[in-house]
Design a protein around this nucleic acid. Structure first.
Lengths: 131, 131
DNA sequence: TATAGTAGTATCTAAAAGTATAGCAGTATG
DNA sequence: CATACTGCTATACTTTTAGATACTACTATA
């Protein structure tokens, strides 16, 4: 008997799923990293913030990272940047209507993360509350 | 009038949300990176695969990365590793029941990613189908 | 004039993530 | 006995990401 006929050869992901991974990676590009979700959450909560305000609200971020992430989020249409004609010039960042659609993803990540923490860390005798 | 009383000072995220970010980052740890989702998807689809099989299915991955990611996913209880008593020894990796709970997160990431691609890239005259 | 607040940029460094290449131990096939 | 398959590991390297530190330019206040 032909052993090659016996073991069914599993075809690669791309062949099976095509570009299934592409939008998933797009989404991950937006949500992964240390700072994007905290910034989105801050702007979702406060609606509008200045640069220095965000620096204080998103604790630990450096101006370089904040600047970089804000540019990224603006390019991805999640936030908007407005220069106010004040002295000194102030810049306000706001969540866009589109940016608010992130909530569903973030709450799914949160929901799964809470369960995951229970599942994985309860074994090691830790509890979520202690963190 | 006191200007400090006028502008409401926005308190930091940690103070406002506590450890809200912790489970979100836990979830992102599992789903971010280049290979974890492809591996989870492959094992969700095929149920059980050998190491070399995964190397072929998840195209482009190196054995080092595959080994590393499989260890990670096993530690996080998403997959199980079984050594079969055959000659030569074969090792099979399977998705666990718990591992299947990733589906909800992945489909949310997919769903949002598809919309995002439309929103962001249609502007530049590209369409999702071309990718 | 010194200080502090606005919004950032520039430069350098460290750490993490990923890639390339090679090799090992075991078994089975021709 | 050479080749090729199984399941990996080791080493060195590059690329990406993030962080630390300092600095600019402008305005307002004491």
């Amino acid at each position: 008997m032909d052993s090659k006929a016996m073991k069914d050869i599993k075809i690669p992901m791309k062949e099976r799923f095509g570009n299934y991974m592409v939008p998933v990676r797009d989404a991950l590009e937006v949500f992964s990293g240390k700072w994007k979700i905290p910034i989105i959450t801050a702007l979702t909560f406060y609606e509008t913030c200045g640069f220095k305000e965000l620096e204080r609200i998103v604790e630990g971020i450096t101006p370089k990272m904040l600047s970089k992430e804000l540019k990224f989020l603006e390019e991805h249409l999640l936030i908007s940047r407005t220069v106010e004609n004040t002295r000194p010039v102030t810049v306000t960042y706001s969540i866009t209507e589109y940016g608010k659609t992130c909530k569903s993803v973030m709450s799914e990540l949160y929901r799964w993360g809470v369960e995951h923490r229970k599942k994985v860390f309860d074994i090691e005798g830790q509890t979520w509350e202690e963190c």
